[in-house]
Design a protein around this nucleic acid. Sequence first.
DNA 1: TACGTCTTACGTACACTGTACGTACCGTGA
DNA 2: TCACGGTACGTACAGTGTACGTAAGACGTA
Lengths: 226, 226
Amino acid sequence: MTSDTPGRAAPERRPALTRGRIVRAAIGLIEREGADALSMRRVAAELDVAVMSLYNHVPNKNALLEGVAEHVVSGMELQDDPSASWQDRARALVRAFRTVAHEYPRCMTVVLTRKFDTTIGLRPAERALALAEAAGFDGVTAVRITRALMAYALGTQMREIGFGKWLHHLDTSPAADFARLDPDEFPHVIALGAELSRHDPEADFEFGLDLLIAALEALPRARPAR
Amino acid sequence: MTSDTPGRAAPERRPALTRGRIVRAAIGLIEREGADALSMRRVAAELDVAVMSLYNHVPNKNALLEGVAEHVVSGMELQDDPSASWQDRARALVRAFRTVAHEYPRCMTVVLTRKFDTTIGLRPAERALALAEAAGFDGVTAVRITRALMAYALGTQMREIGFGKWLHHLDTSPAADFARLDPDEFPHVIALGAELSRHDPEADFEFGLDLLIAALEALPRARPAR
DNA sequence: TACGTCTTACGTACACTGTACGTACCGTGA
DNA sequence: TCACGGTACGTACAGTGTACGTAAGACGTA
């Protein structure tokens, strides 16, 4: 709501405090030093401004983080090629999420990690619904498909974040760790230790995405795909 | 590592401080008042103990939360019916995650939300790998399937948490909100507003799970399913 | 020009956080 | 008997989000 343009000719030397500047400073700070480093004091110092001045543009820290989330998600490139198959367009949509997640890895972590209360993500949802309709699915199914794709995109990202490493732990631990496991309790984990240690998130992501798309192709439809 | 049994005959009236008691108190606190309410001071007060006494059993707050995570996930009921089809067994496995998530909803939120460094979740992973092998998949594929299922379970939970409501927002907002949207930008969202507002996480979850299982059934295998 | 109002940047202050550190007790093995 | 290791404790510190009061400039109107 607050305008992002300085109120004509800044009175002094400094570029005038602004919600946009604050959000950008927060993003920079998070990407450079991680989410834990983000505090109102740090942001204020970054902008060479008193802490409480921030509160003229941002009601509280959570709102600042919402601003970060908004900025990050709105960076999703939702370009679409209507001449492509709905399968490829759907793939591109889900991948767009991954792309922005790679662009702002640490910010994405906080976006996923916190509970916000905004309408961010409506645009991706609109796109997904449009695609599902183009593929010939009825409304109820379109919504469910959208949600399933969302869940998969989210879950993949959470795994990659190393949300808790409970499994991801397997990816990073040296193979020697597997030797410590009880062979009776974890035969398959031990046998597949080498494979579990391998680290190719992109391939994992594409594998699951292909699974979902293939399942959608096999799903009965209300209308033929356009 | 720390023993959970009091060192024989407690010296006074109180039941002796213990890592287990501390973790349980933390879990209770989180479930009753939410993750934000969890502080070392609150836990100490809960147990009627000085704050720093906790540190004799738990190295720091993060370790306490790891204890919470461990306790929660180890509550996953991994019962298995070997006579059932691998499809049904896989379904049961993923549902087990959901079940414990319903049992400790707020704890699960913090478990998913924080980065831990434990081997929790190895047991579910073992089970998933075993099922994939029983279904006839080779090792590489088994690992990818496990990861895809994990990602889906995680993502579903994140959506349900209302992690950001960016889409979940749609589930809770009154239908009137859809009327405020730009009809040119969000035609499908508006058209499907009623459906988007409907709230049936269980059905959504099952829908996506069926998608994945169906896709797995159609996947080529190294060996016939056992 | 003068005045009142609005916006912004500021400083202080408070309640609360995690935890480092030093201390005192208490049951047990030598 | 004595020394010791573990446990519970209290104090203290640096850091957090933010409520509150204040002052200084910008701007529309008289």
